[in-house]
Amino acid sequence: MAIKSFQGARRQSQSTEDIPLKVSDYMTTKLITFNPEQSVEEVIESLIRYKISGGPVVNEKNELIGIISEGDCIKHISESRYYNMPMENNTIENRMVRNVETIDGNMNIFDAANKFLSDKRRRFPIVENGKLVGQISQKDILKATVKLKGQQWGK
């Protein structure tokens, strides 16, 4: 008597080429952005209203010129109180980080995860042809891994 297979039907495995693994597949494209002329108070209100920890600063051509974060705003508040200076008329141009490191939208999400760890950043803007096209955050990387759960983790 012959032994029949006891494993049953097998699912077709999804090839790694079908699994989206690029930063551009998971980046946020509808961003809250700021302009350099905005006041720190406006930024603080936006950070609270939209429940975000920071955002890119762009010029009128949508070119990335900096990034502003909760920490930058807190530093402004702390310094103005320490020196007993009024907070109004202080634009984010004076508070934003200008040398912003970006990453390529074609980067593998696992390489991006390593970059987050090594650079200790919360977000990276993605720029194409000089224009801001999106941003990837640590939370976006986590969302990507949840979507990929059960899939092959190959590159």
Rank of each mutant, 00 (worst) to 15 (best):
K143S: 10
F110Q: 11
G105W: 04
E79H: 11
K61C: 10
P56I: 01
S39I: 02
S69H: 04
K120H: 08
V127Y: 03
E45N: 03
E128L: 13
N129I: 14
K139A: 12
E45Q: 03
E63Q: 15
D111K: 11
G134Q: 03
V40M: 06
R49M: 09
K61Q: 14
E88G: 13
Q135T: 10
R122I: 08
N84A: 15
G134C: 07
I103E: 05
G71Q: 01
I109E: 03
F116Y: 10
V40K: 00
V146D: 14
E128Q: 15
K147V: 11
N99C: 12
L64I: 09
I44H: 01
R98A: 11
L132T: 04
K51H: 09
P56N: 01
I48V: 08
V40G: 03
V40N: 06
R121P: 00
I67F: 02
V100M: 08
S137H: 01
T102P: 05
P125I: 00
K75C: 12
Q135N: 12
E101A: 14
G105Q: 01
T91Y: 08
R49E: 09
N59T: 07
R81Y: 14
E101G: 12
V58C: 00
T102H: 08
K120M: 04
K115P: 06
Y83S: 14
I109Q: 01
A144V: 06
D140N: 11
S46T: 01
F110V: 10
L132N: 04
L148T: 03
I109N: 00
D104N: 10
I68G: 01
E42T: 07
A112P: 00
S53E: 09
V57A: 04
R121A: 07
V146Y: 12
I109F: 03
I92Y: 04
G66P: 03
F116A: 05
Y82W: 13
D140H: 08
E63I: 11
P86D: 12
N99K: 15
E45D: 03
P125E: 00
I126H: 06
R122S: 13
K115N: 12
A144Q: 02
I48P: 05
S39R: 06
V127K: 01
Q138H: 12
S53Q: 09
I48G: 02
I77R: 09
V57Y: 02
